[in-house]
């Protein structure tokens, strides 16, 4: 019989109290994610019902579902203190993988297990009401992160300070520029150090001064045994922020390892693609 050890085993309370152990990890085993792409008639109940009763051609018509395999056979272990950079071309599956890690998508196949509080910065707009002021939005977005308004109110000043938005914090968010929105969203999402921070590439749109400040904050809590997963095109940013890298290509993990090696592999991949494209052009021309 297979011995099954409880994965999310309770750490002794005294350990937690003393801060001796904080267990956070992300673990993927043979994870596949298939996106059903519904279009036209496959979105229609009427067509689907007709199809089941008539079969034949209609069935094929109504069920014109196309499945896109966004991730295929991904196995990754990410543990305490890892700052992981996800790199890959557009459509390589970076965002899908982030969403699986954030718990938004459940894998279609394979297993996903995680431990630790997750804060995900996938979309800047989530929980932000454009008509409310920055300060009101701190409470609002906090709620979607599972933080009670009472607690958030006590942190609001601290968050407002970190954004360095000055008087703008009391202005409606619709007056904000993209960069200001990023400042606000990042400050809110990291006001309580999460065990696992998941960020999509939009962060890179922030200005250099804020990026530096953000990096210091992230480094601070990654040192306190947390996990960072960051997806980006910018090899420069990833090299600065991360110590491990994962290269995705067409939904598969090509290589994992120290960030330098992975970035080098990514450069080779881009080079290869460019060469291939050039060869095709030459053949066509």
């Amino acid at each position: 019989m297979r011995r099954v050890v409880c994965l999310l085993r309770q750490v002794p309370f005294s350990y937690r109290l003393l801060g001796l152990v904080s267990l956070s990890f992300l673990c993927l085993r043979n994870v596949c994610v298939d996106f059903p792409i519904y279009q036209g008639s496959s979105r229609s109940l009427k067509k689907a019902l007709l199809a089941t009763s008539t079969h034949g051609n209609l069935a094929r018509d109504a069920l014109d579902r196309i499945n896109i395999r966004a991730l295929s056979d991904v196995s990754i272990d990410i543990v305490n203190g890892d700052r992981v950079g996800l790199i890959g071309l557009n459509g390589a599956g970076k965002t899908t993988l982030l969403k699986v890690l954030a718990g938004v998508y459940e894998p279609t196949q394979g297993r996903f297990a995680s431990s630790g509080s997750v804060s995900s910065l996938l979309d800047i707009q989530v929980g932000l009401n454009p008509d409310a002021t920055g300060r009101e939005n701190i409470i609002l977005r906090g709620m979607y992160m599972g933080i009670h308004p009472r607690e958030m109110r006590s942190r609001a000043t601290e968050v407002a300070e970190f954004t360095e938005l000055g008087h703008y914090i009391d202005m409606p968010v619709r007056t904000y520029s993209a960069g200001m929105m990023i400042r606000l969203a990042f400050s809110i999402s990291t006001c309580i150090p999460p065990d696992i921070l998941i960020m999509d590439e939009w962060l890179t749109a922030g200005d250099a001064q804020f990026l530096e400040k953000a990096q210091r904050r992230v480094e601070d809590f990654v040192r306190g045994s947390s996990i960072l997963v960051l997806a980006s095109h910018s090899t420069e940013l990833v090299e600065r922020w991360c110590n491990r890298g994962i290269l995705l290509h067409q939904g598969r993990v090509i290589i994992t390892g120290p960030i330098k090696e992975v970035v080098a592999a990514y450069r080779r991949l881009i080079g290869g693609e460019a060469a291939q494209a050039a060869a095709q052009m030459a053949a066509a021309g």
């Binding site: 085993r29 297993r111 297990a113």
Partner: peptide, 20 residues
């Protein structure tokens, strides 16, 4: 093959529990 995971708490490799 059994599904395993690195347990950061004890530094051992443990098997994954049955999924709910």
């Amino acid at each position: 093959q059994p599904e395993t995971v690195f347990d950061a708490c004890t530094g051992q490799i443990v098997e994954l529990t049955e999924p709910p």
